[in-house]
């Protein structure tokens, strides 16, 4: 599948934003971090800013962005619609949390409740993002139960890296912030690693013979294409990344998204000096940002669409 930049930015930025929102709400709920105005402002501002940036980016690939509001109507059947609604709904508790935190600098039962709602809303939204892909039987690499967990894990990992870096800025960096990010990164590595293993061994169920129904005659090969230049289907679904490039890029994704953040966070945990932990946290964040973009690019580039069977793919 063609990796479009708007969708890569959308899923990575909003994912990190929701992840950060979850960590902030969680730690605020349990009083781990104080209801400090500027921490709340910058933290929630970053989270909601990334989420909003992502959502705006997602409308950039629409043919009619001005009609985007219509996408809230089909929640009964469409995961894309559900995602839009969940995203809008999550702004409410997130905004209330921000209000209480930034304006009134308070905690208490009510804010605990909205924090909890913000966490639930974020989780549902990211899950829906994953389901948009996981509900398409046309794409073997996406039609996998592990896809929503991958999206959730990547969101929590990138959000965790963001949270840790932010906490350090405000002098709240601790073993807890680095440890939480570390755990999230390890979880994401495990889940993503599993996902890669699953898609590498997932059988190609459909063949050109089945797609044309001509298998009883023997092998089916394209002889004459229906058009001289690539059409929408070939450009959208026919994008292919060479196997050896994919292997290299997976390596880069593993190094940048997981391994460098992992080592940096371990360093941060045992460094003792807050300055070292702070710098390590920033290194982990920057590396994670590069890594998640490579990871997301590959998620699209490695995906193979059944429709390409009509255009010369032998199996999908």
């Amino acid at each position: 599948m063609h990796p479009s930049y708007s969708v890569i930015i959308f899923t990575t930025a909003s994912g990190a934003g929701y992840g950060l929102l979850v960590w902030l709400a969680l730690f605020r709920m349990f009083g781990v971090i104080p209801a400090e105005r500027w921490l709340g402002f910058l933290g929630l501002g970053t989270a909601l800013g990334l989420i909003t940036l992502g959502l705006l980016a997602s409308t950039a690939h629409l043919g009619h962005p001005e009609r985007a509001w219509r996408a809230f109507s089909q929640w009964r059947s469409s995961w894309l619609s559900r995602e839009g609604i969940a995203a809008m709904a999550t702004y409410v508790p997130a905004g209330l949390l921000g209000l209480g935190w930034v304006i009134f600098e308070t905690g208490g039962f009510f804010l605990g409740l909205v924090a909890l709602l913000a966490i639930i809303g974020s989780g549902i939204t990211v899950w829906c993002t994953g389901m948009i892909y996981a509900s398409l039987p046309t794409i073997r690499q996406w039609y996998q139960p592990l896809v929503p967990p991958v999206y959730l894990a990547m969101a929590m990992a990138t959000g965790g890296l963001l949270y840790n870096a932010l906490a350090h800025m405000f002098g709240h960096g601790s073993a807890l912030s680095a440890g939480a990010a570390l755990l999230a990164v390890i979880a994401a590595l495990v889940i993503k690693g599993l996902y890669w293993r699953v898609i590498d061994s997932a059988p190609k169920k459909y063949t050109a013979e089945a797609a044309t129904g001509l298998g009883h005659l023997g092998k089916v090969r394209p002889l004459d294409p229906p058009h001289t230049q690539p059409n929408f289907i070939m450009r959208e679904m026919g994008f292919k990344v060479a196997r050896k490039h994919a292997v290299k890029l997976r390596g880069l994704a593993i190094i940048f998204a997981f391994l460098i953040p992992l080592f940096a966070l371990v360093l941060a945990l045992f460094a003792g000096a807050p300055a070292v932990s702070g710098v390590a946290g920033i290194v982990a964040l920057l590396s994670g940002a590069v890594g998640v973009i490579v990871e997301r690019w590959l998620f699209f580039a490695e995906a193979e669409h059944v429709a390409m069977l009509y255009y010369g793919a032998e199996a999908a």
Binding site: M1, H61, L62, G63, H64, P65, R67, A68, R70, A71, S78, L80, I132, L136, P137, T138, I139, Y206, A211, F232, I233, E236, M237, H305, V306, A307
Partner: peptide
């Protein structure tokens, strides 16, 4: 809205 999701869903 031209989101193209339907084209992805068609085998």
């Amino acid at each position: 809205i031209g989101c193209k999701l339907c084209s992805w869903a068609c085998p």
